[in-house]
Write a protein that binds this DNA or RNA. Structure first.
Lengths: 120, 120
DNA sequence: ATTTGTAGTTACCTCGCAGTAACCAGAATA
DNA sequence: TATTCTGGTTACTGCGAGGTAACTACAAAT
């Protein structure tokens, strides 16, 4: 999922793309935003992602220091995710991507059915 | 390569991730920058990418209006790629990703060998 | 006559991403 | 007693992304 050849590059930009350059991570970071979110919430807010892949993505994001995982020793288990300082600093970039897209996107005619929104 | 479920979303952010949210497109956009670059140049500047995938990515970027393809009717053929207004407007976002990464990345110890740089 | 150079395209094959389903702990509730 | 609730993990599986190699056109150079 994470491309090790990218992460091993000596180019900062290439390394950055190696860590956040896939489709799920920007979505997950955007969904968490400034909140504290539980695993089950993420799983239900992002319907297209499977539990397994969500787990993997969250683990990588934690390893890369973008988010913090708070596991409470309860039963049934409770785990909360929130963005770290690094993750929060990435939010403005996602905002500029939104603005960029709204400004330049060619008009589409999405079906009224199967609408999916991850924005808050 | 492009995730159609993402592109069909009614959420602008999700659609944006659907078009530029993979590892190669940000790299290609960054390499082209403000220049006009030939196909062969891209192929040699980005060694890890295969010709086939490079062709596919360039075609999608053109379809999404991020770059312009100028094919000269010569033999041997000559094709030049340059960013459109939309593509150029994306460059500042890539710059902020670079800054973000340099500021927050955890220190790595990349091998002195196999160094790869796409930055200009 | 043969090689070179460019920008692809095509067929073929493989590896691995990702989906699905089953399973887990153990307290609380019915 | 059995079910529920949560946040995973594991095994199995299939599809498709992506790599490789061969091939194209045609002019110019050797």
């Amino acid at each position: 999922m994470r491309d090790e050849r990218f992460c091993a590059s000596n180019c900062p930009f290439t390394r950055a793309i190696g860590t956040i350059g896939n489709k799920w991570k920007p979505i997950i970071i955007n969904v968490i935003g400034t909140r504290t979110v539980r695993f089950g919430q993420l799983d239900s807010i992002i319907p297209l992602i499977s539990r397994k892949v969500l787990t993997e993505q969250l683990k990588e994001l934690e390893e890369d220091g973008l988010l913090e995982r708070l596991a409470y020793k309860e039963l049934p288990p409770r785990v909360e995710y929130k963005l770290s300082e690094k993750g929060l600093a990435f939010l403005p970039i996602l905002e500029s991507i939104k603005e960029w897209n709204c400004k330049y996107e060619v008009a589409l005619t999405p079906k009224e059915t199967d609408r999916i929104t991850y924005a808050q």
